[in-house]
Amino acid sequence: MPLMMNNKTPVWRRREPLAQRLIWLAYFLTVLLFLLCWKIVSDNTIWEFLADAHIQAASLIGRMIPPQWSISGSLLLPLWDTINIATVGTALGVLIAFPLAFLAARNTSPHPALRAFALAVIVSSRSINALIWAILLVTIVGPGLLAGMIAIALRSIGFVGKLLYEAIEEIQVTPVEAVTATGAGRMQILNYAVLPQIMPAFAGITVYRWDINIRESTVLGLVGAGGIGLQMNAAINNLAWAQVSMVFVLIFATVILSEWVSAKVRHAVI
């Protein structure tokens, strides 16, 4: 862009000098901040522990291999629970997120105050990990699948709600205008002009979140919220690493499968 004359010879630079300096400044500040943060992390680390880290790692991996295949039968029921947590949790979350997204989208929200409320719910739900919700819910409704399902649902509301309201804000306006011009009521406009436009996105988002929820629900058992994580937690506490690795293998297989299903469904709807 900038072509400058330097002693009558043209000199080409990629950017204006000021822009270039600002970019260098940004890089410099990033490096500075990184070093500062690294110092804080380093100060809080006991480096002596690290001296034998490679030995620890080797012995850990040594004890994990081979996985204890014999316990795989007893893990199937917890795995079923895990899948249920993810599926029911997703369904509940989507049920709440769906109306919320219409309140949060600029073009369908009935009132600015409702919009602010919906956005606040969405951001709170998004900010807090399912595991934290699970810790809370275990103290509230007691350990078990229910806590896990609600935790997954609460986390899913924000995710689905955000992606869905963005999809609603991006719809084509002309069909909405056309249906409005027929004299249709507000709900009829949503039903005829908005809903058909967002349905593919909605299905895609739901399946995508279900896929993520399968992963997340594998660890909810660590805090007592049911599923295969309970077995993993028990095995870790007993230092039975061969059992832990068996759980890992199952999780890995389940996640790969769910990712495949999710990709298939998303291809089918889009």
């Binding site: 002309t174 069909p175 056309a178 249906v179 011009a181 027929t182 004299g183 349905m199």
Partner: peptide, 30 residues
């Protein structure tokens, strides 16, 4: 008032994912 006024648009403004019949019937929504 709007239901007494029909409107035809430049870019057709059909709801693309609905069937032809649903688009026509949407004229009766009011």
């Amino acid at each position: 008032a709007r239901r007494q006024i029909g409107m035809i648009f430049q870019n057709y403004a059909l709801v693309e994912r609905l069937s032809v019949m649903e688009n026509v019937l949407s004229g009766r929504l009011a």
